[in-house]
Design a protein around this nucleic acid. Sequence first.
RNA 1: GGCCAGGUGGCAGAGUGGUUAUGCAGAGGACUGCAAAUCCUUGGAUGCCGGUUCGAUUCCGACCCUGGCCUCCA
Length: 477
Amino acid sequence: MSLKVYNVLTRTKEEFVPLTPGIVKMYACGITVSGDAHIGHAYQSVVFDVITRYLRYLGYDVKYVRNYTDVDDKIINNAAKTGENPIDFAEKYMAQTDKEMDDLGNAHPSIMARATQCIDDIINFVQKLIDSGHAYVSEFGDVYFRLNSFAEYGKLSHIQTDKNDTGVRKDVEPGKLNDLDFALWKSAKPGEIAWKSPWGMGRPGWHIECSAMNLKYLGEQIDIHGGGRDLVFPHHENEIAQSEALTGKQFAKYWIHCGLVKVNGQKMSKSLNNGILLKDVLAKYDADTIRFALLRNTYSADIDITDALLPESLKHVYKMYSVFAALKNRDFSNADSVKTDAKIQEIVVEFEKAMNDNFNTLEVIASAFGWFNFINSELAKKTTEYDLQKISAKIKELFGVLNILQQNPEDYINKIKTNTLHQNGITEQDIEKSIAERATAKQNKDWVTADEIRAKLLKNGIVLKDAPDGTTWDIDL
RNA sequence: GGCCAGGUGGCAGAGUGGUUAUGCAGAGGACUGCAAAUCCUUGGAUGCCGGUUCGAUUCCGACCCUGGCCUCCA
């Protein structure tokens, strides 16, 4: 059973074989910090976080590089609006985004690269492309990639340069020899942030930084290059052109792209301005819930963030933690270890089968519903032959790859309960008092009063559970 | 116009050349004073037309429809 990944370059699912046995070099395009991170950034970052974690689970030594684009037109424009220095502006959003990525439960990449920290590498890269005839300096001090110098252009996106409107027109970027050529280096307008280069003061074009950072941190060839699907053209196509023109070698072996985010069925984009900000989601939901929502989807498919998605996810996560918590008070010392181990083995096989199939986290979660159903059905019996504690420990371990369910169950449940009580404006004391009143009513077989009390609590989001040994309460999610 | 994805049960959404997706919702049952939770059981689907095949939702072709990219975007 081996890992298979869908390679966008070949449009097929291929067996994953890294360039160097045991080692994986992966690069995923990060964020242009021109403002708040949105849920699409969260989706992409979680997808590649989980890919990294699973590759490590399989025993690979993974070097994962992500980047921040911390200088570009939009950053300069947005900073100018508030009168901020673009460097400070970018710094502020990088710090904020770092924090949000932590809060989301993403592990830190091996290296967080930044465009402005690689200016020398970028200049070197561009100079080499000029020297080899793949790039040229315009009369205005801009440097462009000579697209027709790279015969394989379009092999990733299947774009046909003679049939598509590719590139920015010459009247928008004067000095270009061909509409298709794209900027490697942009000359600075007066007063604009700029670095010294052989072609005058300026700054890097968007695409070149990723090629330069890859070369700097990972080398000429990498195993996996990823990003959102919207980057396939032109960004990744241009990266291939730059990098392969420079080295003459295949740049990335596997190209992995995650789908895009839709909001209630509509495409989310900067131009439509219907973005859901990550900070707003984090203010309302915990990392487990958000990750569950994002990973209960095929990563390569678009994900629709409907109004129901996160509330539903919270419900599932809360229930799973509740099952874990319910095991604490049970004794499994008489369990059959052979049966228990067989069940654990079955679960591991299901997990790896799903993940090996192109990181199918959706199937992992579908399987997990079965695992929890199994635990519940055993719990419903008077006695069980399975050590459910041991089984749940394995489930928790496997969910570590998704970085979900890793908290102490009681802590998680209490946190959600506290938040919900606070939101609903009711205290634990109120609830206990109502339960006591209802107990009296129940003793007197005054069902009308008992039911009234229960209905009133339900209105406040509290559900009661009568058991032989008394009544308990829970939040009604 | 070019490139690419997809059309599945009430809704969302997978895999699969012949056998269960899964979740939510629904129905019946156990439990309960009645409920809730949980458990057990259960109904219901593969856009349209051809073809390949013993057999197709799954492969091939045509058609209809939806969405994305081709301009900054994860």
